[in-house]
Simulated assay, not measured.
Amino acid sequence: MRAIAGRTTLAAAILLLMPFAVWLTGWQWLPAPSGWGLHTLYAITETVTQPWGIITHLVLCAVVLWRLKPNIRGTVILITILSATVLLGQGAKSLVKERVQEPRPFVLWLEKTQQIPVAQFYTLKRKERSALVKEQLAQQNEIPGFLRHHWQKETGYAFPSGHTMFAATWALLLVGLLWSRRHALGLALAMAWAIGVMASRLLLGMHWPLDLMVATVMSWLLATLACWLAQRFAGLPEKETYN
């Protein structure tokens, strides 16, 4: 357990560096002009947005099975643990969102530019919020269509970030389960993907830095426990001996 915790703690600290640095600078989000950078960020965030997030989850499960090669019993247990960890994280995120009820950055921007009171916005049902965002942004040509569409779908609360929880949980699971010099490149790519998802949530106007940091800490707790359970019950070796 100590070795697993050490791996996931180091990886979580790396994930926290970016949002912590942004938080220290006092950076405030404003809409950016459309370009390849914004398109790239949107593509990265879509790897977690449903239904693409399900595909991402299945692909990453397949990667873990391919690298660890557990027996049939271990495969069933491992997939159950991985899926339950992701689902538990999303459930915990939803519960916290409903209690904290923090507005998203783009919603506060709409309040300033379109005179949509935040308190009134969140009293509406989700379909009504979506319709209101669509109506108010119909003439906003500086906001690209793909971003307007994303805002229409994501009208919930901000704290904590569900996209970050998904990406960070998976990055930490991979680090905890596949830590080895032979897997260094793959783990580096997984960490870079998670950081990319986190950055996209900031720059698309969906979250504040603290949303990302708290989501990462929650992911660390879940992933560390999940990796220990996988090692304990899925028949995985304690030392890295995989081919």
Results as ranks from 00 to 15, higher is better:
Met1Ile: 09
Leu10Ile: 15
Ala12Asn: 13
Ile14Gln: 10
Pro19Ser: 12
Trp27Tyr: 13
Gln28Glu: 15
Pro33Cys: 09
Ser34Asp: 15
Ser34Ala: 15
Leu38Gly: 05
His39Trp: 11
Leu41Glu: 13
Ile44Val: 15
Thr47Val: 04
Thr47His: 10
Pro51Phe: 03
Trp52Ile: 04
Ile54Glu: 05
Ile55Ser: 08
Val59Met: 12
Val63Phe: 12
Pro70Asp: 09
Gly74Pro: 00
Gly74Met: 11
Gly74Ile: 11
Thr75Ala: 13
Ile79Ala: 14
Ala84Arg: 08
Leu87Gly: 00
Val96Ile: 15
Val100His: 04
Glu102Met: 13
Arg104Gln: 10
Val107Gln: 10
Val107Tyr: 10
Trp109Met: 06
Glu111Leu: 06
Gln115Ser: 13
Phe121Ser: 07
Leu124Lys: 12
Lys127Glu: 15
Arg129Phe: 03
Glu135Cys: 00
Gln136Lys: 15
Pro144Ser: 09
Gly145Thr: 10
Trp151Ile: 07
Gln152Leu: 01
Lys153Pro: 00
Pro160Ile: 01
His163Glu: 04
Thr164Tyr: 04
Met165Tyr: 00
Ala167Val: 03
Leu178Ser: 09
Ala190Pro: 00
Ala192Pro: 01
Trp193Gln: 08
Val197Asp: 06
Met198Gln: 12
Met198Ile: 06
Arg201Tyr: 00
Leu202Phe: 07
Gly205Glu: 07
Leu210Tyr: 01
Ala223Met: 02
Ala226Leu: 02
Phe233Gln: 08
